[in-house]
Amino acid sequence: MVEPDGLRETAIQWLIERTLDRQVSLTREDIADFRFQGEPFRLIPSYQGIWKPARFEATLSIVTTYRAPGQERPYNDALGEDGLHRYKWRGDNPNHPENVGLRRAMERQLPIMWFTGVGGKPPQYQVTAPVYIVNEERDRQQFVLAPLEDASEIPERGEGSEMVTALRRYMKRETVVRLHQPVFRSTVLVAYEDHCAVCNFAHSELLDAAHIVPDSEEEGVPDVTNGMALCKIHHAAFDRRFLGIRPTKDVPVVEIRQDLLDEVDGPMLRHGLQELHGKPLMKVPSRRADRPGTDKLVWAYERFLNATAADVA
């Protein structure tokens, strides 16, 4: 069949709405709910990483398989120095139909959908859409992806396909906002089963994926071991160093800054912060590989203690 007019745009808009503007992840069953003109239409590959429906000229969607921390993916996809993601060819034949499909999407400036595995049982996927293929690096057998809002943002591919410095900075920033932050959030929330680590609050719309070591620091990588699911108030308290997490051999322990413990206020302060002092985290990931890295907790706890010492002084 020839690709139906409007299918990509309809599917992308449906995914944006279904994921609450890309804030929540989806299972394959969720994705299978999509209908186009009243009929079911598959958006995600069954097994392979690249999905080009029969007789479509160009790729419709791609998948990045979830791997737990420390495990390698089947394809060595990676970030480039420009902050953009590289997606490997299928095999090493440039004329493999799946590689041709990606090339056609690039040449025709067609948006595709990117499903990134973030764990869970059944597996869940963070949706990034639209995504455009902005370049092909044939010597490295890979395509360059950018999470752009529309084709007008695609840079010109000139000699050597180099972007100007200002555009590179823009693309690096936008890639973090549109791709890495949502993937990090979904990965962390899946690991914590949509519960706040501190208070066990269980409404994903009011949960954040908090960096233990801020992403402004070199060690602040967007990895599940550098994240905790926290409700809005405990995320703010953690970032402002009103609340610290003390590493232990077992479950880390919550500590509240002394000046807040001494303060007398209403029930929010008493129940929301003071009564948590000295108690273990209420929720940690069931998989040890997903739990906070001890080195990251130590970094953040020392920062919390220094803030406490400065206030007491």
Rank of each mutant, 00 (worst) to 15 (best):
F56A: 01
T19V: 08
G70L: 03
C196T: 13
K121Q: 13
E81C: 02
P69K: 14
H96T: 02
Q13W: 07
V164D: 05
F115Q: 10
A78Q: 13
G80E: 01
G272V: 04
Q181W: 01
P45C: 00
R173N: 13
E162K: 00
L297K: 07
K279L: 14
H96I: 00
D82G: 04
I31V: 14
C199K: 03
I16A: 08
P94Q: 10
Y170D: 13
V176W: 09
D194R: 04
I62Q: 15
P292Y: 03
T175E: 12
L79N: 05
R185V: 00
G117S: 13
I112Q: 07
F36K: 00
T187Y: 07
H96K: 01
V127A: 05
A166Q: 07
N93C: 02
A11W: 11
R157G: 03
E205W: 14
P252F: 06
L261M: 12
K296I: 04
A11S: 09
P280R: 03
M1F: 05
G272Q: 04
T65E: 05
L281E: 12
P111D: 09
L145A: 08
T27Q: 01
A68G: 13
A58I: 01
R157T: 07
C196Y: 11
D262S: 05
P130G: 12
V118A: 10
P147L: 06
D262E: 06
R288P: 00
E263H: 12
V190M: 01
M268S: 10
L207D: 15
P214G: 03
N200L: 09
I62W: 08
L43V: 00
Q126M: 14
K283F: 00
K52A: 10
G266T: 07
T175H: 11
D150Y: 05
P94V: 11
R67S: 10
R67T: 10
L20Y: 08
K279C: 14
A209G: 09
G83V: 12
A68E: 14
I245W: 13
T59D: 02
D259P: 00
Q109L: 13
C231L: 10
D139E: 15
V63I: 08
P252L: 10
L167M: 07
F242K: 05
G6E: 07
S46D: 10
Q23Y: 04
N95A: 12
G6F: 14
D82I: 02
N95D: 14
G119F: 13
G91D: 01
M113K: 15
P94E: 03
G119R: 11
P74Y: 07
H180C: 03
G91V: 01
R288V: 00
A310Q: 10
P155R: 09
P53W: 03
I133T: 00
F56H: 04
E57Q: 09
E17G: 12
H180P: 02
V251L: 15
P280Q: 07
P214W: 06
A313P: 02
Q71C: 11
R169L: 15
R291N: 05
F41E: 11
E3D: 11
